[in-house]
Amino acid sequence: MNKYLLIPLVLFIGLVAFLLVGLNRDPRELPSPLINKAAPDFQLQRLTEPARIFSPKDMRGKVWLLNFWGTWCIACRDEHPRLIEYAKSKAVPIYGVDYKYANDRNDERAAAIQFLAQEGNPYTETIYDPEGRTSIDYGVYGAPESFLIDKNGVVRFKQIGPITDEVWNKKILPLAQQLNQ
């Protein structure tokens, strides 16, 4: 038997393996170009105190988690009780960016204040992004998204979609501990 006849079979198996790997990948999870780069700077009002401006520069020297969310975002509501738990553990301070929904909705700020009052507030500070510009600067496309930022203001980890216990315990916590050393 001609051994060259096996070549198409090997090629075919290779192709199948290639496609199988592709099938199991989530097309929504894109590698963020921000990883290991400086977290984009911004100056935004705090949700409840518009007079006070927050900037990531204030956070130099701390390891912190920046969480983009909105009251309109159902996956964020799903994540919310877990965030409260994580915040209680005091392992990493969580800062929230409340992201406005659409150009035709202007009540996001009030809605967010009410939501946090009712459901509990996991955030050390909540920042309000009225035009979504900061969210665009961070490349947010599927809220909630969370960024772990180190003491030098460099993004070290990004979670697209809700943080699960697995992600928190296996990725965020160990990395935060390592960065805090």
Binding site: G70, D78, P144
Partner: peptide, 17 residues
């Protein structure tokens, strides 16, 4: 195969979208 979390169906509908 990765087990799809139920929340993904909501996510696919798209919070921003």
């Amino acid at each position: 195969m990765k087990v799809q979390q139920p929340i993904n169906s909501v996510k696919l509908c798209g919070p921003l979208c």
